[in-house]
Design a protein around this nucleic acid. Structure first.
Lengths: 307, 307
DNA sequence: GACATCCATGTAGCAAAGCTACACACTCCG
DNA sequence: CGGAGTGTGTAGCTTTGCTACATGGATGTC
């Protein structure tokens, strides 16, 4: 029961291909295949099955891979305890975000992290529609993701989830709109309005459905954009109203776009950090996470002051 | 941070000598020394210090060794989960006991274990006065030990403790003794009696002290024997009375020795299994443990019937 | 105080484990 | 039917980790 081999099995469980595992671990596919073969012989049961031109884990393989995660966590924790002992939060941390969170949290966070010597974060963004968040944890240490209240799609898969903040989703209307002077809005208020929506499959869709149900009236979605800036521009142009995350909206439309809280509907999203449990143990990762949490709190507090 | 090397460090923490670690892991001292040196270089801090002709762990070394235990536990658990998956509780388990528990529990337990194919237990006994129980966990998978109520000397050291049974300690008197017809005895009853005691340092001593305190009168200990059979023989010969564990006494003095429960004093001992936490995870070990527990329950139930 | 003893630790050499490079077999898809 | 994708064998090399033996320091003894 060698740890290295278990690690390979775990990688295979996540990446679903020996070639991918080889690339990720800087080895040739042949080396990976050989090691897995040895593990299988030690285990005494087949761990993989051929399926088409690739292969899939058997039930036994999945079971063993799960245990492998526990071992990896213990090992990572040992490393972390040691780094804490030496007070050495050094290292590289990779991070993906969806664009709006990146805009809101990362500039401040990266600046704060720069103050920690030897700690480096490499950030990227990725369109949330193109890639499912959990899969990204194979490649990145920290994945910033969001989910709507009630749905917690990131549990269950054995990932570590750290909540960073909950952000209300308001209704954005043009400054000269009939609803612009209201202090809040209910589903009944927006009957008959035209909406600028997000592409099909985006979680925002669910909230529009909730509004439909509460109002008892069908919603008209005129356009579908992924980029918030485009949506805002359309709203300002008077082409419709839209759901806008309160802390994230651009602000480059000063005075021409106003946000109104939505009552009667659970209109908020949770912004969380998603991680593979072993990576979540690393001291460098935990340090970055701590910075993100305080940054999120800062943003939230700042918006509470200017309502 | 190689697991094998961490394992060596952990062994060193327990055995306090490279030579001993080498013997236990079937290597030469040179090999152990080299591997620890590599670990130390990776760790970046000295893990050991020379002390006389041997060496001792530094604080850093002890800290890292603690983490190493967690890794070993995770790894052992992975193995156990796998063995459970294959329903394969095969393997060798070594066990030490103090004599009385061996007499009481082991014959039945070993017979039950013989029914499990491929599972082997190797048992030995060891005088409890000569060796401290925790140290034996380095050498044996399961250590049967006892402790008096209130004192739990086996926690704290990071060992796994599984309670098997609690055994009352009665007062053994000859059948023709003035107290032989009583249904129980209090400390006041035994004022003026001569005691056959255990050697100094045995935990039974503490109970005699309690009796002294409750009775307000000094106790006379005439002889000190470790072996229960000798004690019983002296009691039968009318040379004194003694503390006798209720389930364990010989029975080869039928009718000539009677046991009387002691009231007013916490007179019982806990019989527990002591294990290194990683070894406690092994399926074979857990299986043996399960047998021991049911055997202990059987013995206890049997004695409840014949009071 | 010299000597034997018991440690840990260096050095050289050897055996095994694990990797790469390359060839091969198989499946899917245009 | 190729061509691009997959996983897997084989040969050979590199690295790792071990043993055997020698060395040096600390301890205890005659």
């Amino acid at each position: 029961m060698d740890v290295q081999r278990l690690e390979l099995l775990r990688e295979l469980a996540e990446r679903h291909s020996i070639t991918e595992v080889a690339r990720a671990t800087h080895r040739t596919p042949s080396a990976v295949s050989q090691q897995l073969k040895v593990l299988e012989r030690e285990a005494g049961l087949p761990l993989t099955e051929r399926s088409g031109r690739g292969l899939v884990l058997t039930d036994a393989g999945r079971a063993l891979a799960r245990s492998a995660t526990d071992v990896a966590v213990a090992l990572a924790r040992a490393r972390a305890v040691w780094d804490e002992f030496r007070n050495d939060a050094t290292g590289e941390v990779s991070l993906v975000t969806f664009p709006t969170a990146g805009e809101m949290l990362l500039p401040g966070a990266v600046k704060a992290i720069a103050a920690v010597p030897g700690l480096v974060v490499n950030c990227t963004d990725k369109d949330p529609e193109l890639s499912d968040f959990p899969a990204l944890t194979a490649e990145y240490d920290i994945v910033l993701a969001y989910s709507l209240r009630g749905q917690l799609p990131w549990g269950g898969r054995g990932l570590t989830v750290v909540p960073l903040m909950t952000e209300p989703l308001d209704v954005g209307v043009p400054a000269d709109h009939r609803l612009a002077s209201r202090s809040w809005i209910t589903p009944a208020d927006v009957i008959g309005e035209t909406w600028i929506g997000a592409p099909t499959g985006y979680p925002f869709e669910r909230i529009l459905h909730q509004i439909e149900q509460k109002a008892g009236s069908q919603i008209t979605v005129a356009q579908q954009f992924a980029d918030l800036r485009v949506i805002e521009a359309f709203v300002v142009a008077g082409l419709g109203i839209a759901l806008v995350p309160r802390y994230t909206w651009g602000g480059d439309q000063p005075g021409r776009l106003v946000l109104k809280p939505l009552r009667g509907v659970d209109a908020e999203r949770q912004i969380v950090a998603l991680m593979r449990p072993d990576r979540a143990e690393r001291l460098a990762v935990r340090t970055v996470l701590e910075v993100l949490r305080t940054e999120a709190a800062r943003v939230q507090a700042q918006h509470a002051l200017i309502p």
